[in-house]
């Protein structure tokens, strides 16, 4: 009888060429998944980021890694990753030091995409208010460049999965014109990036999610730090 069961599939593709580098290897561009306390499942949607990275690589030619890295706010390697991603269904809680570290990271060139997987909203907004008491989350209008990078989204952020029947919204926090935090709400981009068999979404839904993810990645990486 199986005494140990693996429930989560490691959604990693073997590198197809020697040019793909391990996640987090020095000098390799990748997305870093933010590990946080509070009880929320920071590790949700395991296949989402590898799929997004592949989309970025295939569609833009950027030499990104095949896997995401995992960082905590107080890790020394935080600064090695210009792009952070966080998601979950539950509580997000940062300590005093973690908030300070994240604020410092974001104001000195870092970027955070927070993706509400349903249930993250309240605690995330509280944490953002604590980290940026001077900068509120503002809703991004459809004409913001993030929606018109590689792909066009004339109506703004796409809706991937249903949460509470509300329209999808994209919020941001800016620093001297630079988007430092992007918060996708009532959209669930991460679900759209998962493997096909996880949610069995329609192809166009997945495509919309991946396109938005590509736009976001390129916009974030391409911003000039003031």
């Amino acid at each position: 009888m199986q005494l140990l069961t693996v429930l989560a599939v490691i959604a990693v593709q073997a590198p197809s060429s020697g040019s793909d580098a391990p996640a987090g290897a020095e000098g390799t561009l990748t997305i870093a998944r933010l590990q946080y306390d509070g009880g929320g499942d920071w590790y949700a949607n395991p296949s989402s980021l590898p799929n997004l990275l592949r989309a970025v690589r295939d569609r833009t030619g950027l030499p990104v890694a095949t896997r995401e890295a995992v960082v905590k706010p107080l890790d020394a390697s935080l600064r090695n990753h210009p792009y952070l991603y966080m998601t979950g269904h539950g509580n997000v809680r940062f300590t005093v030091a973690e908030r300070a570290a994240l604020r410092d990271y974001l104001l000195t060139g870092g970027f955070l995409h927070a993706d509400d997987n349903y249930g993250l909203d309240e605690s995330f907004r509280e944490e953002m208010a604590a980290i940026f008491p001077d900068r509120p989350l503002v809703e991004l209008p459809p004409d913001h460049p993030v929606f018109h990078g590689v792909y066009d989204f004339p109506e703004g952020i796409p809706k991937i999965h249903e949460h509470d029947g509300n329209p999808p919204q994209a919020f941001g926090i800016f620093d001297r014109g630079r988007l430092v935090v992007f918060y996708s709400y009532e959209s669930d981009l991460g679900d759209g990036w998962e493997d096909v068999d996880v949610h069995e979404d329609a192809e166009d839904i997945r495509e919309q999610a991946l396109r938005m993810g590509v736009n976001l990645f390129l916009h974030a990486i391409g911003q000039r730090v003031p």
Partner: peptide
């Protein structure tokens, strides 16, 4: 005492999420 292998397919990095199921113990 039990050992559960999990093939990693030669990938250089991964986030593995095994579940230690002791419900039969």
């Amino acid at each position: 005492r039990t050992v559960q292998p999990l093939s990693l397919g030669g990938v250089p990095a991964a986030i593995a999420r095994p579940l230690l199921d002791l419900s039969q113990w």
